[in-house]
Simulated scan of single mutants.
Amino acid sequence: MTARKNESWDAFWTEVTGTGTEVIRGVTVRVPTDIPLVMEQRLKAIEDDASDEAVHEMVALLFGDGVLDQWIAAGMGLMELKTALAWGSAHAAGSPVSFREAYDAVVAAEAAEGKAPNRAQRRAASKSPSASTGGRSKPTSSANTGSARTRSRA
């Protein structure tokens, strides 16, 4: 293999990774092809930080400066943002997915987060209303519903 004279790293890397773009909410973004090293570091540092600043930073690292503001102005919702981030992250990690696959992954992740209801939720769910009145059934004494005791034949 012969090296090209005067080929820059940037030209080489563009050739290797491509320069694809997609339009998301009217904003043309480059398809991420690698996760920036600074993003890996920042993700660990802001793992529990859901502030606007942290979200802006992550979107900028993945898609470019100002993209989140453009998406917000275009009316993007939270589920759309999560889907776009899942799609971009998958591409950046070298595992390209479709928008549908990214959306399905977000929905599955959100369903998994809410899978363990707390005790109060389980109790409320088990108390179903009475069919005729819509209210709870009142307990009935054992005198009205119990059976007579049988005596031993011994």
Results as ranks from 00 to 15, higher is better:
residue 45 A to T: 08
residue 152 S to T: 14
residue 139 P to H: 01
residue 8 S to D: 06
residue 85 L to S: 06
residue 119 R to I: 15
residue 98 S to Y: 02
residue 80 E to A: 13
residue 149 R to H: 07
residue 95 S to A: 07
residue 32 P to C: 12
residue 149 R to M: 12
residue 136 R to T: 08
residue 48 D to L: 12
residue 59 V to N: 00
residue 123 R to K: 11
residue 57 E to G: 04
residue 83 T to K: 01
residue 63 F to W: 02
residue 79 M to C: 01
residue 101 E to A: 14
residue 47 E to L: 10
residue 112 A to R: 08
residue 143 A to V: 07
residue 127 K to W: 09
residue 140 T to G: 04
residue 53 E to K: 08
residue 40 E to K: 01
residue 140 T to P: 03
residue 68 L to S: 08
residue 34 D to K: 10
residue 45 A to P: 00
residue 118 N to C: 10
residue 119 R to E: 14
residue 14 T to H: 11
residue 33 T to G: 15
residue 16 V to Y: 12
residue 127 K to P: 03
residue 50 A to K: 00
residue 133 T to F: 12
residue 145 T to C: 02
residue 21 T to L: 08
residue 125 A to M: 13
residue 137 S to K: 11
residue 136 R to L: 15
residue 91 H to N: 13
residue 100 R to Q: 09
residue 69 D to I: 00
residue 69 D to R: 08
residue 129 P to Y: 05
residue 26 G to P: 11
residue 97 V to S: 05
residue 24 I to Q: 01
residue 99 F to S: 02
residue 25 R to W: 06
residue 89 S to V: 01
residue 117 P to E: 11
residue 25 R to K: 08
residue 105 A to D: 13
residue 82 K to I: 01
residue 143 A to R: 04
residue 84 A to L: 06
residue 141 S to A: 13
residue 91 H to T: 01
residue 110 E to P: 01
residue 65 D to R: 06
residue 10 D to N: 07
residue 112 A to P: 05
residue 51 S to Q: 05
residue 98 S to M: 03
residue 20 G to A: 15
residue 85 L to G: 03
residue 112 A to F: 09
residue 133 T to C: 09
residue 16 V to T: 09
residue 61 L to A: 02
residue 118 N to S: 13
residue 69 D to M: 05
